[in-house]
Measured scan of single mutants.
Amino acid sequence: SKTSNTIRVFLPNKQRTVVNVRNGMSLHDCLMKALKVRG
């Protein structure tokens, strides 16, 4: 089974995003990807 960790990230202006960290990806990469999608 694939394991994925879901991390809630609290952003300024009362924004919130959820990042799924996959195996083999660093938290930083996942964060940058999530913020790019939002931006």
Rank of each mutant, 00 (worst) to 15 (best):
V9M: 02
K36N: 15
V9L: 02
I7V: 11
L31R: 00
V18T: 14
M32L: 13
T3A: 15
K36M: 14
V37E: 01
K14I: 03
V18F: 03
M25L: 07
L27Q: 00
R22L: 14
N20Y: 14
L31T: 04
V21L: 07
V18A: 09
P12T: 03
I7D: 04
T17R: 04
R22D: 03
N20S: 09
Q15R: 01
R38S: 01
K14R: 09
S1I: 08
R8C: 11
N13G: 07
R8S: 05
S4I: 10
M25T: 13
S26C: 14
K36R: 10
R16H: 12
R38L: 02
F10H: 05
S1P: 11
R22N: 15
T17P: 00
N23C: 15
N23K: 08
K14N: 14
I7L: 11
V37M: 12
G24S: 13
V18D: 01
K2V: 12
H28S: 07
C30R: 03
H28R: 12
L31M: 10
Q15K: 02
S4D: 15
C30S: 09
K33M: 04
V18I: 12
M25K: 12
G24C: 14
S26I: 15
F10V: 03
S4C: 09
V21M: 05
V21I: 04
V19A: 10
G24D: 07
S26D: 02
R38G: 00
T6V: 15
M25V: 12
I7M: 07
M32I: 08
T17I: 01
K2Q: 15
T6K: 07
H28P: 02
G24V: 15
M32K: 08
R16P: 00
N20K: 14
D29H: 05
S1T: 13
V18L: 05
M25I: 08
N13D: 11
G39C: 12
R8P: 03
K36T: 06
K14E: 07
R16G: 07
M25R: 09
K36S: 12
K2M: 11
H28L: 12
P12M: 04
K2G: 15
T17A: 06
T17F: 04
L11P: 00
N5D: 10
M32T: 11
S1H: 13
K33N: 03
L35P: 00
N5K: 09
D29Y: 13
Q15P: 01
K2E: 11
N13H: 05
T3S: 09
R22C: 13
A34T: 03
V37W: 04
N5H: 07
F10C: 07
V19D: 00
T6M: 09
K33Q: 06
N5I: 08
M32R: 05
P12L: 01
I7P: 02
G24Y: 04
V18G: 03
V37A: 09
G39E: 06
S26H: 04
K14M: 09
L31P: 00
K36D: 12
R22H: 12
C30F: 03
L27K: 02
N13S: 10
K33G: 02
L31V: 07
N13I: 06
N20E: 04
S4V: 05
M32A: 03
R22F: 02
N20H: 13
V9G: 01
M32V: 12
K2N: 13
R38H: 00
N20I: 11
S4N: 13
L11M: 11
T6L: 07
N13T: 15
I7S: 00
V37L: 07
S1A: 04
S26R: 08
P12A: 02
T17N: 02
G39V: 06
V21E: 01
S1L: 08
N13K: 07
N5T: 13
R16L: 06
R22P: 13
K33E: 01
N23I: 10
P12S: 01
V9T: 05
N23T: 09
N5V: 15
K14W: 04
S1C: 10
L31A: 04
N13Y: 08
T6S: 11
G24R: 07
L27M: 14
V19E: 04
A34P: 08
I7N: 00
K2R: 10
I7T: 03
T17S: 09
G39S: 12
N13C: 12
L27P: 00
R16C: 06
N23H: 10
L35V: 09
I7F: 11
V21G: 14
V19I: 09
Q15E: 15
F10T: 05
D29V: 09
F10Y: 07
N20D: 07
P12R: 01
T3I: 09
F10P: 04
N20T: 12
L11R: 01
V21F: 05
D29A: 13
K33T: 02
F10I: 03
V37G: 04
L31Q: 00
V19G: 01
S1N: 14
R38Y: 04
K33L: 04
K36I: 12
N5S: 15
S26N: 11
R38Q: 04
T3P: 14
G39A: 06
S4R: 12
R16S: 05
K2T: 10
K33R: 10
V19T: 14
A34V: 03
K14S: 05
D29N: 11
V9A: 12
V21A: 11
S26T: 15
N5Y: 08
C30Y: 03
H28N: 06
H28Y: 13
C30I: 05
H28C: 14
T6A: 09
T3N: 09
K33I: 02
T6R: 14
L35Q: 01
D29R: 05
R8H: 06
R38C: 00
R8L: 13
K36Q: 08
H28D: 14
F10S: 13
H28Q: 15
K33D: 02
K36E: 06
L27R: 00
N5G: 04
A34G: 10
D29G: 12
G39R: 10
R8G: 02
Q15H: 01
A34E: 02
L11Q: 00
G39D: 15
N23D: 11
L35R: 00
R38P: 01
G24A: 10
L27V: 15
K14Q: 05
V9E: 00
N23Y: 11
R22S: 08
N23S: 10
L11V: 03
A34S: 08
S1R: 13
R22G: 08
C30G: 08
D29E: 04
S1G: 13
F10L: 06
T6P: 06
V18E: 02
S4T: 15
V9K: 04
M32S: 04
V19L: 10
V21S: 05
P12Q: 02
K14T: 08
V19F: 13
L35M: 08
C30W: 01
M25E: 05
S26G: 08
L35A: 14
S4G: 10
S1Q: 14
Q15L: 03
